[in-house]
């Protein structure tokens, strides 16, 4: 699944194109694909949100919505998906990550924002339902990674906020308005640590992801 720009071919759905290349025993082919259109989509993540053994898709759009695409058994292409949507409470969303935050086996959603420093959490509830969106004060984030950094069986969030200017042609320019560090939120945001080394690497390479 690749998120691209707005429809560029005749017949494509409106919105930014999420292109699915279907796998097979022969690998991937240029022609075995399906395009979904999501208006103002900016990021996507996959995870098994309903614990049915297959990864589903969550697409974040700039208007503060999460668009859900549920995996479905199908031997026919193209696939008709069941879709869903989650409204987020604030704006300025930047990135989305899927990871099991509460240990129930279903992937939950973590959303990073720009400006307010809020981090949104949305817990998945089987079957195909979602808990309330909770907001946590953190840091602006262009990407969030989740992992148990200290071995306490609780997930930590690692946030980076990287922004880079682009010339008219799209080539990368200078980094600007970026935080000076990678921020780590420990144990449900009880402790805030700062780790500067990784961010230096991020700036040097122009990365915005872990």
């Amino acid at each position: 699944m690749v998120l691209g720009e707005e429809a560029w071919l005749p017949g494509q759905p409106p919105g930014n194109i999420v292109r699915i290349y279907w796998g097979s025993k022969r690998g991937y082919l240029l022609t075995r694909r399906q395009d979904l259109g999501i208006r103002a989509a900016i990021d996507l993540a996959s995870g098994d949100f309903d614990r049915d053994g297959a990864s589903d898709l969550a697409i974040l759009s700039a208007d503060g919505k999460i668009h859900l695409v549920w995996a479905v058994k199908s031997q026919v292409l193209s696939v008709e998906f069941q879709r869903g949507q989650i409204e987020l409470p604030g704006d300025g969303v930047q990135c989305i990550t899927a990871k099991d935050m509460d240990g129930d086996g279903a992937a939950d959603l973590v959303i990073g924002t720009h400006g307010s420093g809020e981090v949104y959490l949305v817990g998945a509830r089987v079957p195909r339902e979602w808990g309330d969106v909770t907001s946590h004060k953190g840091f602006s984030a262009s990407h969030v990674a989740v992992g148990d950094l200290d071995g306490d069986q609780k997930p930590e969030l690692v946030l980076t906020d990287f922004d880079i200017g682009h010339a008219a042609g799209g080539e990368a320019g200078a980094a600007h308005e970026s935080e000076t560090s990678v921020n780590i939120l420990l144990e449900r945001f009880r402790l805030v640590g700062i780790h500067g080394t990784e961010h230096s690497a991020c700036q040097r390479h122009g990365d915005r992801r872990f």
Binding site: M1, G4, E5, N16, I20, Y28, S46, S55, K73, S74
Partner: peptide
């Protein structure tokens, strides 16, 4: 191998959306 085109790429993820 690099034969799968995309235009204006922004993000990528992997998922078995058709359960095959």
């Amino acid at each position: 191998a690099g034969v799968l085109p995309i235009r204006g790429a922004k993000a990528i993820t992997l998922a078995d959306l058709n359960h095959d």
